[in-house]
Design a protein around this nucleic acid. Structure first.
Length: 564
RNA sequence: GCCCCCGUAGCUCAAUGGACAGAGCAGCGGCCUUCUAAGCCGUUGGUUGUGGGUUCGAGUCCCGCCGGGGGCGCCA
């Protein structure tokens, strides 16, 4: 709130200076209100003067002076003084009552604190995870789920209307589904004591045997005979369905829910793939060559053209995916976000090309690529899973280290960086573990509130409490951090960078722990105790909101297990 | 060969183009009769891989090179 307010005043001042003939410029550039690293440069700083210098044909410090002299009078309410400094920064020093205003504002907002109207109800579709129904969710899918879900929560907080969607790669004619069904069928036959050999490129994980086993339990030897093709089709359905249910369960337990599970096959059933291919042909961006149908993606910056329909008449995965994305555009979202693994990055250019070929604005499609996740146990890399063969499953790691720690670790780094997760560290209940650091701050606050209640100290009324007594360095540092939440949410959304929020939560926790050590709450003299109780409450609300956006719980208490 | 990501303190990583590049861990030294020490304070540690360029200002943007990871299918 304070940043927007300052930005508004600075903008007004620049225009007023122009009116008064003190400054020349055509259009007001986008400028920043930033928090200087060094507190001696004020509480906030504006960089407008530097950006305006060229247009105004004046040196930046003169421009800054001109802006400074035209700041609206109402800015006196919060601003104590403004200084022109450095290359032409406008440094704002706020009045002491500002901290109290922030606390009051947070308490008024309550659990909504941080919510924005930035999105103005615009509709966003986030498609993520979208794992193949041929195996359990892996460690990599977990990253996708954590990043996608928190991004969705952030967009919601920013005032967008968000839909979460899981795309099921279940095309009935696809080789992978067929192969998967064949693998399950082979295991099933082996269970019945028949000689059957796994296909060359079959699925070898333990889970395939589990599915075969469960089919046997439900259907006995019903599938021992019968038309092989019919049996295989049946296995496709059953195996796919079971896998999907397992994935949904894993996601549910991981705190991720989807609004829609959209099946690739349904696109074929509704002729959407065919219609999309026709549309591409009509627009002149699909052509026949050597018996196949090609997308002319070169025309839109891709490095080569891509096959849509194979020479054998079967559409490729791309064809269905183009139809799917066309469908997304047709549903009228303002923003479409996809979250893909790094191994799909080569796919971005062709998908954007396809959308451009269909006449849609490719900029409305954000495709985020997240990098690999490596698992360690201490210094030892973990590569194999018992259940899934060469993959480590989300379930295994989630069960071992817990949802809170795992979600937090997934969001600790930018999705652009490869991520190493150390199971030992994530399980460790110690100061090395960042999840506990944040949760502990929340638990400590709850503990203060419990103790206050035990001692009969009532939570003061914010309207009737003088908050101007909050002047300690640690109090001010904490308040500044708390005030940042709305901006952090805005930035996280603008940059599609959910990991910013973990960093923010850590910052708030750090500021609180500092405050906790420096400033005694209960037992301080009454006026100060009241103000600090309210500051504590505002901190709890802020931490709880940040944690909830991360999908991490905010515990009321934390007991440390005896380690010795 | 082409494409994507990364390269910042011993390690893992931050830093919407802004001021003196910051945290955590590891190391060293301190702080529990008072709201939870899963905490706090102090301290050591840097030519931001490298060479150019753009800019009032570059870790950040552009080009080249070096190193690490991933991808380049009528698989999905």
């Amino acid at each position: 709130m304070i940043r927007q307010q300052l930005a508004e005043w600075v903008g007004q001042a620049a225009r007023a200076a122009r009116e008064a003939g003190a400054l020349e410029f055509e259009t007001l550039p986008e400028f920043d209100i930033e928090t200087p690293r060094n507190p001696q440069f004020g509480d906030f700083a504006a960089n407008l003067a530097m950006l305006l210098a060229r247009q105004a044909r004046r040196n930046p410090r003169e421009v800054a002076e001109a802006i400074c002299q035209h700041l609206p009078a109402e800015s006196n309410a919060w601003v104590e003084r403004v200084e022109v400094a450095g290359a032409g920064f406008l440094n704002f020093y706020l009045k002491p009552n500002w901290a109290g205003e922030v606390v009051r504002h947070i308490l008024e907002q309550g659990a909504r604190y941080g919510s924005l109207t930035l999105g103005a109800g615009k509709r966003v579709l986030i498609e993520f995870v979208s794992a193949n129904p041929t195996g359990p969710l892996t460690l990599g899918h977990g990253r996708n789920a954590a990043v996608g879900d928190t991004l969705a929560r952030l967009y919601e907080a920013a005032g967008y209307t968000v839909e979460r969607e899981f795309y099921i790669n279940d095309g009935e004619n696809s080789t992978q589904i067929r192969n998967f069904a064949l693998s399950v069928l082979t295991r099933y036959r082996q269970l019945l004591g028949e000689p059957a050999e796994m296909p060359e490129d079959g699925y070898h994980g333990e889970y395939v045997k589990e599915i075969a086993q469960s089919i046997r339990e439900q259907h006995g030897d019903d599938f021992a005979q019968g038309d092989p093709e019919t049996v295989l089709k049946r296995f496709e359905q059953i195996a796919k369905q079971q896998m999907l249910q397992e994935q949904a369960r894993d996601l549910e337990d991981f705190g991720v829910r989807f609004d829609r599970w959209l099946s690739e096959q349904s696109l074929y059933d509704a002729s959407k793939v065919q219609k999309t291919l026709n549309a591409l042909r009509e627009r002149g961006y699909a052509y026949e060559h050597e018996g196949a149908l090609w997308l002319k993606s070169i025309a839109f910056g891709d490095e080569k053209d891509r096959v849509l329909v194979r020479a054998n008449g079967m559409p490729t995965y791309l064809a269905a995916d183009v139809a799917y994305h066309r469908d997304k555009y047709e549903r009228g979202y303002d923003l479409i976000i996809d979250l893909w693994g790094a191994d799909h990055h080569g796919y971005v250019a062709r998908m954007k090309a396809a959308m451009a070929a269909l006449g849609y604005d490719p900029n409305r499609l954000h495709i985020l690529i997240y990098q690999l996740v490596n698992l360690f146990r201490g210094a030892e890399p973990v590569r194999m899973s018992k259940r899934a063969g060469e993959f480590i499953t989300l379930r295994e790691v989630m069960d071992e280290i817990g949802v809170d720690a795992l979600r937090f670790f997934y969001l600790l780094r930018s999705h652009d960086s490869t991520l190493d997760i150390d199971i030992e560290l994530a399980k460790e209940q110690s100061e090395k573990n960042p999840v506990f650091y944040v949760q502990y701050a929340h638990a400590r606050i709850c503990s203060i509130e419990r103790t206050a209640a035990e001692r009969g100290v009532a939570m003061p009324d914010p309207a009737a409490t003088d908050l101007s007594v909050l002047t300690h360095e640690a109090e001010i540092a904490l308040v500044k951090k708390l005030a940042d939440l709305p901006d952090e949410i805005a930035l996280a959304v603008q940059h599609d960078a959910p990991h910013r929020l973990t960093a923010y939560a850590l910052d708030v926790a750090r500021a609180f722990h500092g405050f906790y050590t420096e400033c005694r709450v209960l037992g301080a003299e009454p006026a100060l105790q009241a103000a600090r109780l309210l500051l504590t409450q505002a901190t709890r609300l802020t931490l709880a909101r940040a944690l909830s956006l991360l999908g991490v719980s905010a515990p009321q208490r934390m007991e440390r297990e005896e380690t010795v």
